[in-house]
Design a protein around this nucleic acid. Structure first.
Lengths: 143, 143
DNA sequence: CCGTATCCATTACGATACTG
DNA sequence: CAGTATCGTAATGGATACGG
C-alpha cells in the first residue's frame, strides 16, 4: 500500500490544478458574493444594490464564473419582466466558512495593517537605508 | 454599556476598510507567498524558484505590498552581492491558517469544480434554454 | 544577487446604450 | 428586470536591459 503523504499537492507548481481553483475564488468580488448569498437567495438587482461599488458587468461576470464552477445556482423565471435568482449550491456553502475566516481576519487586523502601512510610509526606502535598518535590527537582536 | 453586536462591519459598503484589507490578501500571489514563507525565512531568489510561474516583477510587487501591510519582514544584508531575506511577521503568521483553509478547500474540491465546469460548458446558455432548464428543475422539485 | 526602469501587449473595468 | 454589446481608458503583467 502506497501512502502518499501529501495533504497538499504542489501548489507551488505552475499549472497546478488546485492553484487554478484557488484563483477562481481569490478575487475581488467572489468573497463578497458568497457572503451576500449566505443570507439566502437573492435576485440580480438585489445583489447589485447590496454589494456597494460593483458594476453590472462585474457582477454578471462574477456570477457567471461562480455558476460555471458550481458555486451558485441560477434560476430564471420565464416571466416578463424577467426574474433571476441566485442561490449558493451545497458546494458554494462549503466556502462560506473559509471565506468568513478571511473576512474576519481582515476585520480583526484593520488597525495593525493600518499602523504597519503608516510606519512603512514614514521610513526611508533607499537601498542604503534598508541595509542600515537591517543592521540596526541585527544589533538590537544581539543585545 | 453599549454592546454593539456587529461582529462584521458592513463589508458590503464601498470604501469599507475591512474590504480594502481583504483585497490586499485576496490576490493571485499573496496566498502562495504566505504558504512558502510558512516553511521559514527565504531569500528572494528562493521564492522566485519555489513559486512556479511568478515573475520577478510580480514577486517584488507582492512582497513590497506585504511588507507595507506588515505581513512580512524584509532584511537586507549589506554585502555584495546583496542578500535579502523575507520572513513572516507575527501578523503574517495569523494569516497562515485562514489561507491554508482556502488552499485546502481548493484542493479538496478539485473534482467537483471540474465536473461543474464540464457540465456547464455542455449545457445550452441561450436565454430560452436557461428559462426552460429552470422550469424543468422547478417541476422536478415538485414531484 | 536583488532589484528597478522601460517598453509593450493584453486584459480589466466602468459607462453607456440597447434588447428580450 | 436582467442582462448583452460596444467603446474607451486604465491597470496588469511579461520581457528585457540596466544598476547598486
Amino acid at each position: 500500500m502506497v501512502t502518499k503523504q501529501q495533504s497538499v499537492p504542489d501548489i507551488f507548481q505552475e499549472n497546478c490544478l488546485s492553484r487554478q481553483v484557488l484563483q477562481l475564488i481569490a478575487d475581488q468580488w467572489t468573497p463578497l458574493v458568497i457572503a451576500a448569498l449566505n443570507d439566502g437567495t437573492m435576485r440580480f438587482g438585489q445583489l447589485l444594490k447590496r454589494i456597494g461599488g460593483i458594476s453590472r458587468k462585474m457582477l454578471t461576470q462574477t456570477l457567471r464564473a461562480m455558476e460555471r464552477n458550481g458555486l451558485v445556482r441560477r434560476v430564471v423565471y420565464p416571466v416578463v419582466p424577467p426574474v433571476v435568482e441566485y442561490t449558493l449550491t451545497p458546494l458554494g456553502q462549503t466556502l462560506v466558512e473559509p471565506m468568513k475566516a478571511l473576512r474576519d481576519w481582515a476585520y480583526g487586523h484593520l488597525q495593525e495593517v493600518a499602523q504597519a502601512r503608516t510606519a512603512y510610509d514614514q521610513r526611508d526606502h533607499t537601498p542604503l537605508q534598508d541595509a542600515v535598518a537591517s543592521l540596526v535590527q541585527q544589533r538590537e537582536k544581539s543585545l
